[in-house]
Write a protein that binds this DNA or RNA. Sequence first.
DNA 1: CCGGTTTTGTTGAGCGTTCAACTAAATCCG
DNA 2: CGGATTTAGTTGAACGCTCAACAAAACCGG
Lengths: 156, 156
Amino acid sequence: MGLMTRWLDPDEQRTWRAYLTASRALMETLDRELQRDAGMPHAYYEILVRLSEAPGRRLRMSDLAELTGSSRSRLSHAAARLEASGWIRREDCPTDRRGQVAVLTGEGFATLAAAAPGHVEGVRRHLFDALSPAQVDQLRRISETLADHLTDSGPN
Amino acid sequence: MGLMTRWLDPDEQRTWRAYLTASRALMETLDRELQRDAGMPHAYYEILVRLSEAPGRRLRMSDLAELTGSSRSRLSHAAARLEASGWIRREDCPTDRRGQVAVLTGEGFATLAAAAPGHVEGVRRHLFDALSPAQVDQLRRISETLADHLTDSGPN
DNA sequence: CCGGTTTTGTTGAGCGTTCAACTAAATCCG
DNA sequence: CGGATTTAGTTGAACGCTCAACAAAACCGG
């Protein structure tokens, strides 16, 4: 931590504020749409998606937390709610007696299937439709770079 | 709303997931740093910043909500907390008897001044240092495009 | 094999956000 | 002017997330 602060120059300011505005607006919009149309926040939708893609539609809580980029605590609370909604079920892990396995229920899969088209449409409308193909490519590279950078220097 | 869903192709999927991972990680990291070093979430920091930049370090609640991209309700709750912390104060608006004006206190300004260098350093480390100048420029254009697009088609 | 450490997952409190409902003042318009 | 509508801001309940504390099982080193 040096002594002199390297403040943001006007261009960097502008970039940072545009980024904040856009990413906040994007996520809020998608979150609201999903809440309205499917009765769940985006974070829960992501959990169901990951489960639906896993073999047997089941995943260890740890792996699910990793995949969705959430803390164990967060996932635990989320799983409790998803279970109460009947969208997942938790089973004991046969190979590790500490472990739990989250399983997507039929009802959960049906709910996801019903929600997916509208949500994908939203992602398209609010993100991909607004950008040129070149920009989409740029956004991918930028995001991958940032994600790498952030997980290297770690959650501290 | 058409009948056929235009699903995301593999490239779009990859872009979307990378974006989600990166933006979530970035905001969580900055939020945690700010909470640790300054005892406030990023959203509250932004409120103080906007107030500090306003003439007289004061803004109508409405304008402040607009500038920080938050709902009236959110800002109202936030203002209550910031007031309890002694960082802002609320006054009646002289020209509109419905109105309230949020004013940054000396203590609020001092807290902000103490928090700013560390936060800016964080933004630099986690965002700007990871990207090339060209990428920063791309990110700015992308963000501005998205922000425009999202505020046009509106909060629905 | 045994004691310390790490890993897995849960829990409860506290906080911030959303949403809907509400009050009060300002504005609009016939 | 006067009644309807719009705008400003607040409130409380419900919800999701964070953080710290915790229990239980697994792992690791001597």
